[in-house]
């Protein structure tokens, strides 16, 4: 049995909350279970098959979404297994609270992507909004597992309060990248806005050049070899996610350690100065 392709019937209109549209549901209850789901769009509640057409397509168990310009929020929210592909853009909360499986977005996604994520993999071909890998609104725990790769830019507060996992952004990120980070790794290919790592306790932020200015809570530890970078690079190169501007050999980098004002021993590693 092949996968299912869901194509939006009427792109124009308010955002659609896609929470619950998951490959697990397809695997458990088949198309019928999926078609009978109630989705919220604006003030209205609609059956899924009233908003989308069904077609066969893709590998077995895979869910492919064709938003056609509609804003789809919460794609892959709470997902535990399987694959979702989005042939276009996503709205907010893509892969939020995700625990397993893979979400691949061929376009861009909005704010709070991978917020509260605990496992699985998110790959975004375009840009991502603010709060990528941050806590869900009102929450205190950022991303605690899994991996996120954004081939374009990302907004402010990437990886805020992140506890574990890997975020790789090939383009630029906004301000406060890794703020209040507790652990994990953030790789930024093209530089960041102000105040990366503010109040971070532990964790690693890999940048192509030193932030301007260097945040006040960070001390310059100078150059050294960081063997774990080889493992990170291997992991990302294997997935085609190592930023193109980063060195493909060597483990030297300049290390800023902080945020000492918060008692932290996190690090900002600057790779291009190797």
């Amino acid at each position: 049995m092949s996968g299912v392709v869901l194509t939006i019937r009427e792109p124009a209109g308010p955002p659609i909350d896609m929470t619950g549209v998951l490959p697990e549901r397809l695997a458990e209850g088949g198309r019928k279970a999926l078609a009978g789901l109630t989705l919220v769009r604006g003030r209205g509640r609609h059956r899924l098959d009233a908003l989308f057409t069904f077609q066969d397509g893709g590998p077995p168990g895979t869910l492919i979404l064709r938003p056609g310009g509609a804003v789809l929020d919460g794609v892959g929210t709470g997902m535990t297994a399987g694959d979702i592909g989005v042939e276009g853009d996503c709205g907010a909360y893509a892969a939020s609270a995700m625990r397993g499986g893979t979400l691949t977005i061929e376009g861009s996604c909005g704010a709070f992507a991978a917020a509260g994520m605990a496992g699985g993999s998110l790959r975004v071909a375009g840009d991502a909004g603010d709060f990528l890998g941050a806590p869900l609104a009102g929450g205190t725990r950022g991303m605690s597992g899994g991996s996120v790769v954004v081939m374009g830019d990302a907004g402010d507060r990437v990886g805020e309060r992140m506890r574990r996992g890997l975020i790789a952004v090939h383009g630029r990120v906004g301000s406060l990248c890794g703020a209040r980070m507790i652990a994990g790794t953030i790789v930024v290919g093209a530089g960041c806005g102000p105040d990366p790592g503010q109040a971070m306790r532990r964790g690693s932020i890999l940048l192509p050049r030193a932030p301007e200015p260097v945040p006040s809570g960070f001390s310059d530890g100078g150059m050294n070899d960081w063997l774990f970078l080889e493992l990170v690079r291997k992991e990302l190169i294997d997935g085609g996610a190592w930023p193109s501007g980063f060195p493909t050999a060597g483990t030297r980098a300049r290390r800023l350690i902080g945020d000492r004002s918060a008692g932290g021993i996190g690090e900002v590693l600057i790779l291009s100065e190797a």
């Binding site: 574990r164 994990g184 790794t185 532990r202 774990f228 690090e267």
Partner: peptide, 24 residues
């Protein structure tokens, strides 16, 4: 207290500061 745990590719490592850099 200066050691750092790092999970890479589903495996966990410790980075222990030593006098020539880090012991991974």
């Amino acid at each position: 207290g200066w050691q750092i745990a790092k999970r890479i590719g589903g495996r966990r490592y410790w980075r222990i500061p030593v006098m020539d850099g880090e012991f991974l």
